[in-house]
Design a protein around this nucleic acid. Structure first.
Lengths: 165, 165
DNA sequence: ATAACTGATTGCATAATGCAACTGGTTGTC
DNA sequence: GACAACCAGTTGCATTATGCAATCAGTTAT
């Protein structure tokens, strides 16, 4: 991908994110706060293969969507962080979630977060992006945590599902 | 793609649209009003190959994002139309355009429409979607045409560019 | 010393993409 | 009726991407 196919914004976004795994990786870093290779490898619903994950992480770092730093607690351990361009994908991911929720056979547990973000609107997205800037870029912490709110809602649905079976 | 990887809305959207061509085809039908195979094949900036276009059209029809009908003026001619799920992709495409415009090396002519849609906000998107429902689904025509507005702005920028060289 | 954990890499099969040529049919023009 | 232009694709072949399982070398905890 040295040359671009065209200068169209939709096309250029597609050239970077238009495959079946890149946004899955970003989603897991963003919503699951998975920062290490093994976390991304093992804990994902979709089961990405290690060579694909390796290739994706490399490409996303090269494209400037992720940054890689070393974990002081373990000399071999790498931490992947979102960059500002990746954080700016929040509205796009919300729209993807909203569309999937409306037209695809989503599961209840895995769509509650998409629902909350859709209903929360741009104000909530901004709050979430501020929180991501805190977590990944060292910006000051916002007053309240959207991530915790989403996580709590997810746990609530999982508990409900478990209770009803 | 018989079985889904997970019930996550983002993943499911990715399973259908996560490749380098599907959204290009939908973009051309939506914004360029290209309804025939040859129009989609030849007039695209990116130059899709005919076998890929053929495969994508088949898949998009099978997935319910496009519908195919025959043109009464030419027994062999097929017309592809957007379905409601495809029209519902407008906010997603707008976000893709907005992100690409901010972080990728877009060209001036090809990003003016993305800019107008981004600045126009949800009200403009709804107007555009109503117009698409008119064009593709036979719904009543809305008062004003967003498509014409976008096209006029595009022509204006092309003329400016031509004048300055 | 050893076992578990770290971020990967390797080998191999299958699937997707890219490119160019070609097919079978239809329509309009002379 | 002959002929060129147009229509929606298909075919063959090379390259690239994906999927899966096994493996690797260094690091840390017991």
């Amino acid at each position: 991908m040295d040359q671009h196919r065209s200068g169209c914004p939709i096309n250029l976004t597609l050239e970077i994110l238009g495959d079946r795994w890149s946004l899955i990786v970003i989603r897991d870093v963003m919503f699951g706060n998975r920062r290490h290779f093994r976390e991304l490898l093992g804990d994902s619903e979709e089961g990405i293969a290690s060579n694909i994950l390796s290739a994706r992480l490399k490409r996303l770092v090269a494209e400037g969507l992720l940054s890689k730093s070393s974990d002081p607690s373990h000399s071999q351990k790498s931490i992947y962080s979102l960059t500002e361009p990746a954080i700016a994908l929040v509205p796009l991911l919300v729209q993807m979630g909203a569309w999937g929720r409306r037209y695809m056979p989503v599961s209840k547990e895995l769509s509650i977060r998409a629902q909350l973000l859709e209903e929360g609107g741009p104000a909530m997205w901004q709050g979430f992006m501020d929180e991501l800037r805190h977590i990944h870029l060292g910006a000051p912490a916002p007053d309240k945590s959207v991530l915790e709110e989403l996580q709590a809602a997810y746990q609530r649905v999982v508990a409900e599902e478990a209770a009803s079976t």
